[in-house]
Amino acid sequence: MGRPRGFDEATVIRSAAELFSTRSYDGISMDDLVTHLGVHRNSLYKTFGSKRGLYQAALRWSLEHHIAPLIDRVAGAGDLAQALHVAVGEPAEEAGLNLLLMAVVERAPVDREVADQLAPVLAAFDQAARTAAGQHSPAGQHPPGEQHSPAENARQDEDDVAFALTATILGLRLRARAGTSGTNVDQAGAALAHRLTRHP
C-alpha cells in the first residue's frame, strides 16, 4: 500500500486556481507553486504530472465553481443591466473571471486543450446574455447577404448584443485588472447597461 499523499487535492487545486488568476502562466514557476501551495514538488508532479497538468485541473475547477454559477446568475438576471451588474459587480467572482480572461488571452492561442475547454464556456456566456435580454433560443446563423425578415433582424440584433455583453464583461475585468486610475468597473458596467436597455 502506498504512502498517503499528505495533502488535500481539492484544496491544492483551489489554491492553484487563485494563484493562476493573479499572474501569467509563464510567470509562475514550480518553485512558486511549491511555496504557495505548501506541497512538496515531488507530490505535485506525482499527482498532476506537470505544471500544465496542475493548471488544467485549476482551470477546470474554476470554470465549474466560479464561472458556471456566474453564468447561471447572468441567465437569471431580469435584463441586460442586471446581467452586467451580476457579472462585474460581485468581488467574489473576480478570481474566476481573471483566470478565465487570462486563459482566453494567454493560453488558448497556444494550448488546444485550453481552447477546447473555453469554447463552450464562452458560448454559454453568450446564451446567458441572450436569456437575460429575453431571447431564450440559441443564435441563428445566416449566410452573408441573405435577406432577413424584421423578426430575424431583431433576433440578430439580440445575438449581437449578447456577444457584446460577453466581450464587455471580459473587457471590464481586463480594465480592472490593469488597475487603471479612475476605473470603476461597476459604474462603467451600469452606465453601459443603461444605454443598451434604453428604448429609442
Rank of each mutant, 00 (worst) to 15 (best):
G27Y: 03
D126Q: 14
R107M: 13
R14I: 02
F125D: 02
Q141G: 03
H40P: 00
A124G: 11
E93H: 15
S15N: 15
V114P: 01
M102Q: 10
L80A: 09
M102W: 14
E152Y: 02
H40C: 13
Y55P: 00
L59Q: 00
A16P: 01
R107A: 02
A103S: 15
A75G: 02
A193K: 02
A68L: 04
L80E: 04
L63N: 05
T35E: 13
N184V: 07
A81S: 05
R73E: 15
S50Q: 06
R177H: 07
H66P: 00
H148C: 04
A193S: 04
A129T: 07
L54Y: 12
A128N: 10
L118Q: 10
T131P: 00
H136I: 05
R198H: 13
K46D: 09
V110A: 08
A190C: 00
L101W: 12
G171H: 10
L192C: 04
M102E: 14
L165W: 06
D116Y: 06
S29R: 06
D8E: 12
L165D: 02
A164F: 03
R173N: 09
S15H: 04
A95T: 13
P143Y: 13
L196N: 01
G2K: 14
T11V: 10
R52N: 01
K51F: 01
L172K: 04
P91W: 14
R198Y: 03
T131Q: 06
R23I: 09
V74M: 15
A123C: 04
Y55F: 15
D159L: 00
R195C: 01
A133V: 09
D32W: 06
A151F: 08
G38Y: 14
H148D: 02
P138N: 14
S21R: 09
E94Q: 05
L99R: 05
A58N: 05
G78N: 11
G171P: 10
D31Q: 08
D186V: 14
D79G: 13
A128E: 07
G6A: 13
L118A: 11
